[in-house]
Write a protein that binds this DNA or RNA. Structure first.
Lengths: 193, 193
DNA sequence: GTTTACCCTTAAACTATGTTAAGAAATGAG
DNA sequence: CTCATTTCTTAACATAGTTTAAGGGTAAAC
């Protein structure tokens, strides 16, 4: 099994030995995910971390009225999982599904824990990965509490220009915490300067 | 130097040997921080991670109009730092200051990196610490994009009942992303059921 | 123990965002 | 290629949250 994109990703943080690479490959699965296919359903256990090699997935929750809220997008090079549920073993409250045809590398909980024990630098690598994601998320919180929808949309376009091309605006609106109708108005306002 | 609260904190994740405890103590400083004293100023470098043993600190940014936005509170048992700036070595955009008289244990960057190299289980421990903080932050983002101010305030009270006693409402409003005036209205609405 | 600075509340007018509904445009599946 | 579905836009009206201003209450600091 060829997990090269994932290996490359790890090696962008720290070099790995041949043995380590082989051990990682032996514990990773490659999976093709079709558009709209779910890899996690609310109420089920989140059994794996997923690394996105191609395409894009989203994690979202659905409230009692059936409204969806996008918590996270994960495109090429990003990770996605319900981290809390993954470690606690409790049923997830979130869904994860592909918004485009995608290829992901998944690591099951037992395999990830085994890898942590065998390759201690993976603790370091994942610590750095999640630190980076933490900082991103903190910036998002800051945007949410300090900026108008216009500013948040402009920031999103600046920070994720590729996603803007690839995602329908309904999905972006859900991520920004506004309605698609209002996003439409925001875009009109911004387009005429 | 007695860093027992910090040692206890680490040992709530994984046990440490005597040698490890001593090494940690040798790289940690205990600091008393007075109310309103700043331990980080925007424009300066964030040189240390701080573990709060007593009291409470906040991290906030100030926009061009002089308005403050509270990104995070850290009370007993929590960590606080501008993680992005700490690792990148770039000037911070945030302030960190005590909202109560506090006692913190600080670790300088060089010391923390040294500890990571000498005690590899600290990579694991900090990975878990930040995973937990990530999950908390993700829930906060979800609240921000899905809930009204009333719901966000109720959640805050539920999740941080002690902080509600200890912080002025202005600080909580800034954390929730609303004005103090509107929080006052929210509190009135909620108080009469 | 005053005094000063900060904090809380209220209310009216204003602005940002949500809701509903409907038609037009774009896109995916067969 | 074409149908079915999803997405985008517009507009009128409704609600959530802000601004400004003012008075009274609390708590920190000297």
């Amino acid at each position: 099994m060829n997990a090269q994109p994932l290996i490359d990703h790890f090696e962008s943080f720290l070099p790995l030995s041949d043995t380590e690479r082989q051990l990682i490959e032996s514990r990773v699965a490659r999976r093709i995910v079709r558009r709209k296919e779910e890899i996690l359903r609310a109420g089920h256990l989140c059994r794996h971390y997923s690394f996105v090699a191609e395409g894009c997935l989203k994690m979202y929750v659905v409230d009692t009225k059936g409204v969806n809220y996008n918590i996270q997008f994960a495109a090429e090079g990003d990770w996605i999982a319900d981290i809390g549920g993954f470690h606690s073993g409790k049923p997830s409250q979130a869904f994860i599904e592909a918004v485009e045809p995608s290829i992901v590398f998944t690591i099951e909980k037992e395999d990830l824990y085994h890898l942590y024990r065998s390759i201690s630098k993976l603790d370091r690598i994942f610590k750095v990965i999640i630190e980076n994601k933490f900082v991103e998320l903190q910036n998002r919180v800051l945007q949410n509490i300090s900026s108008t929808a216009h500013e948040r949309y402009r920031s999103f376009v600046e920070q994720y220009p590729k996603l803007v091309q690839r995602l329908p605006n309904t999905q972006i609106a859900s991520y920004l915490g506004i309605t698609p109708e209002f996003l439409s108005k925001v875009r009109k306002d911004l387009s005429r300067h």
